[in-house]
Design a protein around this nucleic acid. Structure first.
Lengths: 225, 225
DNA sequence: CCAAAAGTGTTCCGTCTACACCCATGG
DNA sequence: CCATGGGTGTAGACGGAACACTTTTGG
């Protein structure tokens, strides 16, 4: 311990992941039963401790990868939760991260292996410690961000229909949108490009499939829903 | 160390305060020369370690109080900075907080005692570690928040003129605003109430003094600049 | 042939923006 | 009496919201 650092105490720092998914036109959250004490058996976000050899952001990436097997996932810091008694066991400060993933990319066997499952956001049970606060805050941030950044694609497959996209926005914002106004706005956005492909899964008539063009987005990242 | 906690490492957690002030129609930041190693003599935000007996928010309040002698100050978490080598001495994770204070409330003797001073935001020097990143992020958040929350009052005395208020917004947003449009909008906001008092300091004619009515704000917190 | 989802424009209204002159007073 | 900052209204542009019918095709 060099210099004045030694005068102070260290604490454990953890990350907790608020993992949003979209399925069946609903926003869902990946949560599981805690498999350790304290709080064993309680519903909880998935998390882990920050190691000495990784940044906090890297710890969040690692934890998400352990759980889902996915890398390069959209993930943003939500906030840091630092109440003294927030963890009933020891003093642990936790940095909450919000991730958006496409449910279809998720390997279902990993899901069982870690004892987690998708739960509808509006049927969320009471969670361990302050995890409900984390979710609330993440949702608030997500609702704000979804209007100014094109992030909703992260909840969908690479190819998606406009109806699907609209349902994502409706699920996040918790309100219905006007179909014509929605499509009008999307049409003005260059980086949401129509492909020649048609999806025949969801309708008899078939719907055009769209794609998020990252290159075009980089050129002109203007976005407003 | 109980259970699985002991398998993991602890780290130091600090708070750093980005303290905004408003004076001479400019946004200013309270910074000082580091008085300890590593980085002694470099410009730096004012910070401190989180103790075992306080939450992270409380640590931020305490650090701000040590520096300014002020309590009940507007302060919000900005983000947590957790790169491995962000602090050249040891592994320290830091939670950045943004505070808004009225420069006039500040006891100048404390300023010298702690070796800090007000520096214009656009003349900000290079700061220790990642503190410039913290400032950038705080400013981004401040600019967003100032449009949807009535927080600019925190930079002014209890009584202020509309011209002063406009200058605050201009300083934060970094752009000039139209006087008539600005006053039109303010007039629609009930909780910014005109008093009978006149300020004769800044103009010969005298300007009406306004006040932020917290009670009215609680009743109807609608705000949009 | 019909149910079910895809696709498509226009009008109206409210909001934001641009803009210039008179007022009151201390020195 | 004049320099200085305080205070006021209107018109035009723009963007957002409301709104209903036609198309396609699998079953």
């Amino acid at each position: 311990m060099t210099g004045y650092y030694g005068l102070h105490s260290k604490v454990w720092v953890a990350v907790d992941c608020i993992i949003f998914g979209f399925d069946n036109n609903k926003l869902k959250l990946l949560i599981g039963r805690r498999q350790m004490d304290p709080g064993r058996g309680e519903w909880s976000l998935y998390g882990g401790f920050v190691g000495v050899d990784e940044s906090v952001d890297e710890a969040a990436d690692r934890v998400l990868f352990e759980l889902t097997g996915l890398k390069h996932i959209y993930m943003k810091q939500v906030a840091t939760f630092g109440a003294i008694d927030r963890d009933p066991g020891e003093r642990v400060i936790s940095v909450a991260y919000c991730a958006l993933i496409n449910v279809k990319d998720y390997d279902t066997s990993l899901l069982e292996e870690h004892g987690v499952e998708w739960v509808e956001l509006d049927k969320l049970p009471h969670l361990y410690s302050d995890h409900n606060d984390m979710v609330r805050k993440a949702l608030t941030l997500l609702r704000r961000r979804v209007k100014t950044e094109p992030i909703s694609f992260n909840l969908l497959p690479d190819l998606f229909t406009l109806t699907q996209l609209q349902h994502v926005y409706e699920a996040i914002l918790g309100e219905e949108l006007d179909k014509r106004n929605f499509r009008k706005r999307i049409k003005q956005i260059d980086f949401i490009e129509k492909t020649e492909l048609i999806d025949k899964m969801t309708s008899k008539r078939g719907a055009a499939l769209y794609r998020f063009n990252k290159r075009m987005y980089m050129e002109d990242p203007t976005f407003k829903l």
